[in-house]
Write a protein that binds this DNA or RNA. Structure first.
Lengths: 149, 149
DNA sequence: AATAATCCCAATCAATCTACTAGGGATTAA
DNA sequence: TTAATCCCTAGTAGATTGATTGGGATTATT
């Protein structure tokens, strides 16, 4: 019941871009260093986010990446779904196209999975990158000496 | 972000035992057939549940399994944790002993994982096997012709 | 025009995990 | 004694994870 590193690293990267929103393109290398992620691996994740329209890229020297829209317009849910696919603790309750199950109409166990899926969705859809940036500034103001990425 | 079949089959099996609570020992073969699970595989899951004290066994001919306590005393959370281990979308927020992270005190991403973990816990700890049995009876009363396991 | 910095892309791979299967031993009711 | 059951250990094919490798394309700067 864990997220893979796709979702985890991906959110870290998007959060990093949110912290640096408005500063022009941020290089992959910088993000990877700050977030301590293999840069080649992160490249693949960012490619997915770019194709999904969450991130824009600038090629060539002085290029890099930036959020495609402002941090308050991007939710944690969009990011995680883009990288991990439709959410749900079981195939039969996956968002969008739950795979068919003979018993779906009357499966009591399924009711449980559905409740779990909904509660996860509620959490991740209610948190925007801006919320995370706000948390960052709160933490930063409390302990000046620490590095909060 | 899916549960493995351990948690999914395990809950199905426990639900089956809850439906048949008070009827004496239920054989593994019966459970496996009703729930359409490989019996040898289910055996391993039930062994785990038995060692955790959620299920009692009766050996020999006419033996089988039964819940160790009444369905209202057993939650979905106990069952899933027993089979899947401590819950959490990321190592750093696992229940019980979150693995150490240099950044834990000030990691904004971690705050998100913590919220997900808590919301999942709230759902699974609030549902007992008795709740599932009640759902079963409600469904059964509505559509008499279907087989609700 | 040359160069260095960057993004872009496809293929490969070791390690781990998942969902079993195989094969046999121990216990007990009939 | 026998058949029905639980109990236990080991193996395993296939999928997935989390990368690594090795290049190509684009662009700012010199």
């Amino acid at each position: 019941m864990k997220l893979s590193t796709k979702g985890r690293y991906g959110l870290k990267a998007m959060y990093d871009l949110a912290i640096n929103y408005g500063e022009g393109p941020i290089t992959l290398k910088n993000i990877a260093e700050r977030q301590r992620i293999s840069d080649h691996y992160l490249e693949q994740l960012i490619a997915t986010l770019r194709k999904a329209g969450l991130v824009k890229s600038v090629r060539g020297a002085h290029g890099g990446y930036m959020l495609a829209s402002s941090p308050d317009k991007i939710t944690v849910g969009e990011i995680i779904r883009t990288l991990e696919g439709p959410l749900g603790p079981s195939e039969c309750v996956l968002e969008g196209d739950p795979s068919f199950c003979d018993n779906a109409e009357c499966c009591v166990t399924r009711v449980v999975w559905e409740k779990i899926r909904i509660s996860i969705s509620e959490v991740i859809d209610s948190i925007s990158l801006q919320d995370m940036v706000n948390d960052y500034h709160k933490l930063k103001d409390k302990d000046h000496y620490m590095y909060y990425i």
